[in-house]
């Protein structure tokens, strides 16, 4: 079956069996290997991607079900050489060790901050509770997401300031 979808802003398509999982399509057909597989039961969240901005475990979705959708994978977080706030947060706060859960964690964190720009620790822990990390004990992942929230807040403030200072601005 033909699958046509948008991945990280680019139109992509492929011909797959109906049973092929979205995670396998991303990894095998599109060679986007940043999305990982850690279990077979939709328990670990290593395969998390964003579909229309919402975190989804891509092992629970058939590739054909994603037709027409817009998908963001870890490879789509940075804008060229510019890392996104969540990526900077994970680096600065040592939010990763082996790195295997990191793409899923960062995508969930990104989605959380879109909905809730200033989450509490409990809100962060609840948001990432569908994703398992075996290395960090979650302490620094929480800090990393808070760090990203702070960077986004600072960026918004700067944008607001610039807008205010611009001629004709309000």
């Amino acid at each position: 079956m033909k699958v046509t979808l948008t991945v990280n802003g680019s139109d992509r398509s492929g011909d797959v069996e109906p049973r092929v999982l979205l995670v396998d399509f991303l990894r095998t057909n599109l060679r986007l290997t940043g999305t990982h597989v850690g279990c077979d039961t939709s328990s670990c969240g290593a395969c998390t991607v964003l579909i229309e901005g919402e975190p989804v475990k891509s092992c629970t979705v058939l590739a054909v079900q994603a037709t027409g959708r817009s998908i963001t994978t870890v490879e789509g977080l940075a804008q060229g050489a510019n890392l996104s706030p969540i990526q900077i947060g994970f680096h600065e706060e040592h939010g990763l060790q082996c790195g295997f859960c990191t793409p899923g964690m960062m995508l969930v964190g990104t989605s959380l901050l879109e909905r809730n720009p200033n989450p509490t620790e409990d809100e962060i822990r609840w948001a990432i509770s569908g994703n398992i990390c075996r290395c960090t004990g979650y302490m620094n992942i929480v800090k990393a997401i808070k760090h990203a929230a702070m960077l986004r807040e600072a960026a918004t403030a700067t944008t607001r300031e610039k807008a205010g200072a611009a001629p004709g601005g309000q």
Partner: peptide, 8 residues
């Protein structure tokens, strides 16, 4: 970290 946070 660089390669891991980029999914690489």
């Amino acid at each position: 970290d660089g390669r891991f946070i980029r999914g690489k």
